[in-house]
Simulated scan of single mutants.
Amino acid sequence: MEIRHTANETKGAFEVIEEGSKVGEMTYFKSGSGLITIDHTEVDPSQNGKGLGKKLVDAGVAFARENGLKIIPACPFAKRVLTASEKYADVLQ
């Protein structure tokens, strides 16, 4: 399993790649100075129960921390993950 990050000036995505195929994705867009909004997280139903969605959110959190960004979790899944633990408090907007 590999998590890939792609981005341009306004938006980006983290993808889970397994055996050469994309099996999950989390997208975000830049929503102001120092802010990103996670707007969508999706994992192939055949991969449910493996924690891939949380791994995508964790990759987004690592990216935010490395770049001094705050996260607005517009995606219900990302919001649930990010608000469930104090360990994410430093990146929440």
Rank of each mutant, 00 (worst) to 15 (best):
N67P: 12
S21H: 13
V43F: 08
A64T: 02
T10P: 07
A64S: 05
A84I: 08
F14P: 01
C75L: 12
P73D: 11
G49W: 12
R80H: 12
E25F: 02
I17N: 04
G68H: 11
E25A: 05
Y28A: 06
S46E: 15
V16E: 00
T37Y: 08
P73W: 08
E66C: 09
P73F: 11
K79H: 15
A13K: 07
E42D: 06
A78H: 07
M26Q: 14
V43K: 04
K70W: 03
G60K: 06
K87Q: 10
T27F: 10
I38V: 13
P73K: 03
L52K: 00
P76S: 15
K87Y: 02
S46C: 08
G51R: 08
T27L: 14
I17A: 02
G49I: 09
K79W: 12
F14W: 02
L92C: 06
A13E: 12
M26N: 11
D39K: 11
N67L: 10
L92K: 02
F63S: 03
F63P: 01
C75F: 15
R65L: 13
Q47V: 01
L82G: 02
E9N: 08
T10L: 13
A89K: 15
K70P: 03
M26F: 11
E18N: 09
F29S: 03
V81S: 02
T37C: 13
V23I: 04
T27C: 11
G60Y: 08
L35A: 09
E15W: 00
L52I: 09
S31E: 03
L52C: 02
D90Q: 03
E18M: 10
K55H: 04
G12F: 03
S85C: 13
Y28W: 12
E19N: 09
G24E: 00
K54M: 00
A74I: 04
